[in-house]
Design a protein around this nucleic acid. Structure first.
Lengths: 149, 149
DNA sequence: CCATTAGTCCCCACCTTTGCCCACTCGATT
DNA sequence: AATCGAGTGGGCAAAGGTGGGGACTAATGG
């Protein structure tokens, strides 16, 4: 399965359009897909999936939705499916970010699109900087002793 | 089977008509169906089913509706099915929401129509905001650390 | 049995938003 | 120097969301 890597600096234009890295679009085309799947992610970012990755998520992780507490299960499904949206890049390779996802991720103007393996992530630049400082840096120090690489 | 996703902000007009997202109607047309099925849902929302999803629900009857307490099961099924109604979008793509369902979901003016996988859900905006705050957010906090995505 | 009223359906109309297309700039490459 | 690809901005036609009139139906009441 295709792996998404790299970091790209883009900007959200007045019409809430956001460029998708050509490499990702190329991968999409190779998969013979027309659309990505965009949804709200953890720690206040957005997740961008290729169709195959999205399908895998639905297939594999449907068990993650299966909870003994059905009320909680409904809550999860509601959030997951209602935030998700199919986005097709326009002729310039931009996708349209819905207002509610823009708010979820606190997107302003400067936006980071970066690969995260089985998905890409979209971050507001400032929020990413803060997250990196507050969480990634300390985590690195801490887990270094137990990681092989 | 078709998956319903995405979030749409609409309003209930003075005649209790409510827009259905074009994407959902498109899916309906692809299924060669003319009507959705609308009924009262859990946590004070409304469920909107595509014909195929509705059929599946009926077929899965035993599993879907089974409760240890059979009297409760009968009570729930009575409400669920008596409140159900077949709704056909008009030329503008709007469905008519019966008065009793409007009350069930506490619909006022601002209404959310959102995908929930095997169905769509219709929420009063304020009620959804409260539900998100009171139920979804805490559930995510609790389970977020163990989620793989 | 007729008159009235409420509710529904079918139009039409308006206006905002969306999506599509074209265009400009800039840097890298040939 | 010219060309190409990429990122960004904006114009414009089309689609989508909303409101309301008028006909028709059915239930209600005199």
């Amino acid at each position: 399965m295709a792996l998404l890597i790299g970091r790209y600096d883009y900007s959200l234009d007045p019409k809430n359009r956001l460029a998708v890295p050509p490499k990702y679009r190329e991968t999409l085309a190779q998969e013979k897909g027309r659309s990505f799947y965009l949804t709200g992610g953890m720690e206040g970012c957005l997740y961008l999936f290729l169709p195959a990755q999205w399908e895998k998520l639905l297939a594999d992780d449907l068990r993650m939705f299966s909870l003994p507490d059905k009320e909680q299960e409904r809550a999860f499904k509601r959030k997951f499916f209602s935030e998700a949206v199919e986005v097709e890049p326009d002729a310039q390779g931009r996708i349209l970010v819905p207002q509610y996802l823009k708010e979820h991720a606190g997107l302003r103007f400067d936006v980071l699109v970066q690969g995260a393996g089985n998905r890409a992530e979209i971050w507001d630049s400032k929020r990413w900087a803060a997250y990196e400082k507050s969480t990634i840096a300390p985590a690195y120090k801490k887990i270094g002793k137990s990681l092989e690489i």
